[in-house]
């Protein structure tokens, strides 16, 4: 495996994150919640990879494990050519700077007792960037970049609207001049007009600063619009990944098809997907999942082999991978 592939900003190899949920009743084995189970993908420099899937499928856990808010159970995380998955905290610091995260909740993710200036300068202090004077310049510059004014620097988060708070979160993430930014539901809590403002800003910043994004969202049409490539997760597994257009036009995995068919179509007269693609039932529990394909309990194409053997992700077209025995 070539770890020095300098086209890739991020390579994730066989990433696993299991949460130990204590012992199951009447069993010697621990109950394992396999939140992320053997997930691999790469993101090229300057690209955006979108990650979608139902609530609880492991999107945030993937993100948090990559940025090492969680310790991975197994797997490699290669950031710009360096395997950071096994680095100690002290060695990690210089690499952390390259990678930042924007969170969903612009209310909860900002410390309400800190001024905007303090919030944004926190990562600068951690990484010992600039003198006090230089830091002020950096902050003003950042505020300008995210469409806020320098007068805002001395205010507190509660004085801002949701969209403005998300801008503050973005300014903080960009303070250390990262190369790679993970956006975990950055717009879900915002009104549609404000969502569009933030998305446009993220795109401008990407162009200006050459950023690479991992973009997580519930809104599939927004993910398709903002991402070059798109990955679909189901119960801790990556079941399909391809160029966004390709995923939308030629979804291969039965789950991807069902997911896309559920998206309400914005054009009232456009052809509606056939009813029978729609999914019944709910996401099963990720605790000790059964062997075989995890989608089998909801898949209408499920065959005998699906319950026994796990389908592996394989190439089914140019840059198009999917994991299903049908393919």
């Amino acid at each position: 495996m070539n770890y020095m592939n300098n086209e890739n900003m991020l390579e994730v190899h066989n990433l696993k994150k299991y949460f130990n949920m204590g012992k199951k009743l009447f069993s010697k084995e621990p109950a394992l919640l396999k939140a992320v189970d053997d997930v691999s993908f790469t993101i090229k420099k300057g690209e955006t990879l979108g990650l979608v899937g139902e609530s609880g499928c492991g999107k945030s856990t993937t993100a948090r494990t990559i940025i090492r808010l969680h310790e991975s159970t197994e797997g490699k995380i290669i950031l710009d050519g360096v395997d950071i998955s096994k680095l100690k905290e002290s060695e990690l610091k210089s690499h952390r700077k390259k990678m930042q995260m924007i969170f969903q909740d612009p209310y909860a993710s900002l410390n309400s007792r800190m001024t905007v200036k303090d919030i944004i300068s926190e990562p600068l202090l951690v990484h010992q960037i600039g003198s006090k004077h230089e830091r002020m310049d950096i902050i003003e510059n950042l505020l300008h970049k995210v469409g806020l004014k320098k007068e805002h620097a001395t205010r507190y988060p509660h004085e801002f609207s949701g969209g403005q708070r998300q801008r503050i979160g973005i300014a903080r993430a960009l303070a250390v001049n990262p190369d790679f930014v993970i956006c975990d539901e950055p717009i879900s809590a915002l009104d549609v007009s404000i969502q569009a403002q933030v998305v446009n800003m993220l795109q401008d910043l990407q162009e200006e600063m050459g950023l690479t994004y991992l973009f997580i969202a519930h809104d599939l049409s927004m993910v398709k619009y903002i991402s070059n490539r798109m990955g679909v997760m189901y119960l801790g597994k990556l079941v399909e990944i391809a160029d966004s257009e390709e995923v939308y036009k030629h979804p291969a995995h039965p789950y991807t098809k069902a997911l896309l068919a559920s998206v309400p179509f914005l054009d009232p007269q456009a052809a509606k997907p056939e009813e029978d693609i729609l999914l019944d039932g709910d996401l099963p529990s990720p605790l000790n999942p059964p062997p075989g394909c995890r989608f089998a309990s909801r898949c209408k194409y499920a065959m005998d082999i699906c319950k026994k053997e796990e389908p592996l992700l394989k190439e089914i077209g140019t840059n198009h991978l999917a994991a299903c025995h049908l393919l």
């Binding site: 404000i194 569009a196 998305v199 398709k224 179509f265 914005l266 054009d267």
Partner: peptide, 14 residues
Amino acid sequence: VPRPDMDQQSRLEP
């Protein structure tokens, strides 16, 4: 909101 036919080149107009 992104319309079905939009690609990354077209821009949202908030």
